[in-house]
């Protein structure tokens, strides 16, 4: 197991280096266009661009610049944000924290809800409950976030007047402002996890060891809790781990709609403002979280499933 963890972490670092190289080549070299033009605008003249390249060390060889760039990154020097006029770290960390809060509450509600409904559904495949949950899950998952955000706003903000319309938290943290974004995310995501859980549970319920347990007279509750659940939750575990990654960078729509000052909105702002340093840092963080959650999922999957072993 220790070897597996070390190998996985090593693979994670290797992936990060490859990604950083791709990111560097995309944003910092002329492979996909002139970085000076990206910062100064497509109609800037060559004189202005050359001055900018000189000032920012862009006339050095690519590998020298990459090593320097990577070194700065590794030592926490993420550069200065053009839009926010300050160090990237100072801008990014509070935004990451805000998205972590949003993600925490989304998970705190979505996971128990989707697992419970998925298990209930999978336990009695084809029943009315199963069909209802499945139809409801498919329905909510197929409605895009921007549509459900409009629908919930119309209902709870303009119609019933129960909830605040935006979530900028400008006066400090207020849980009421979190309700609508969390609601949209939960509704969008729970159906997917519930369906995965259902499928996994349904498969387990038809396996021979469950049939044996039932036939040998074990109480049904005991069969479910002690024998079925552990195996049924392996697949949803991986899916849930992947949702962390989705939550970090996939919440752009929700954060934009509700003016929530999170990491997803920050990525959008960095892109729209050609804020290269901020965009690089955000992308690296998003990739790190993606790779880290994948690694954790792999390790956890192996831990949960003794049939999978790596030597």
């Amino acid at each position: 197991m220790v070897t597996l963890v070390i190998k996985r972490i090593g693979f994670m670092i290797f992936t990060m280096i490859i990604v950083s190289l791709i990111l560097f080549l995309l944003l910092e070299t002329e492979l996909t266009g002139d970085p000076a033009a990206r910062v100064l605008g497509q109609f800037s003249n060559e004189e202005q661009r050359e001055l900018w390249r000189e000032q920012h060390g862009y006339n050095q060889p690519v590998m020298v610049r990459y090593v320097k760039w990577l070194g700065n990154f590794a030592t926490g020097d993420l550069g200065e944000s053009i839009r926010f006029k300050g160090p990237v770290a100072d801008v990014m960390l509070p935004r990451l924290w805000n998205t972590a809060i949003l993600g925490f509450w989304t998970f705190a509600i979505m996971i128990p809800l989707s697992l419970t409904l998925g298990v209930l559904s999978g336990m009695r495949e084809g029943s009315m409950l199963d069909r209802s949950i499945s139809v409801f899950g498919i329905l909510t998952t197929s409605v895009p976030e921007f549509a459900s955000a409009v629908f919930f706003s119309a209902l709870f903000v303009f119609g019933l007047k129960w909830l605040p319309g935006t979530s900028s938290m400008s006066g400090g943290f207020e849980f009421r402002q979190l309700i609508l974004p969390v609601m949209v995310l939960v509704v969008y995501d729970f159906g997917y996890v519930a369906r995965m859980t259902r499928a996994s549970m349904a498969e387990v319920m038809t396996s021979q060891y469950i049939r044996t347990a039932v036939l040998k007279g074990l109480p049904y509750k005991s069969v479910i809790v002690k024998h079925a659940l552990r195996n049924a939750l392996i697949a949803p575990f991986t899916v849930i781990m992947l949702q962390i990654n989705w939550l970090l960078s996939g919440v752009i729509v929700v954060e934009f709609f509700f003016a929530y000052k999170g990491f997803g909105a920050l990525i959008l702002e960095a892109s729209l403002n050609n804020d290269i340093a901020l965009l690089e840092a955000c992308a690296m963080v998003a990739v790190f979280v993606a790779v880290a959650t994948q690694t954790l999922a792999d390790i956890g999957y192996t831990f949960l499933n003794p049939r999978i072993r790596f030597s």
Binding site: G165, T166, S168, A259
Partner: peptide, 21 residues
Amino acid sequence: IRFVDLGQDAGAYLAAIASKQ
């Protein structure tokens, strides 16, 4: 006086004023 940035979505401004934010 608190100036609050609600982004560039006109709908967010309407929702904020409608809900007295």
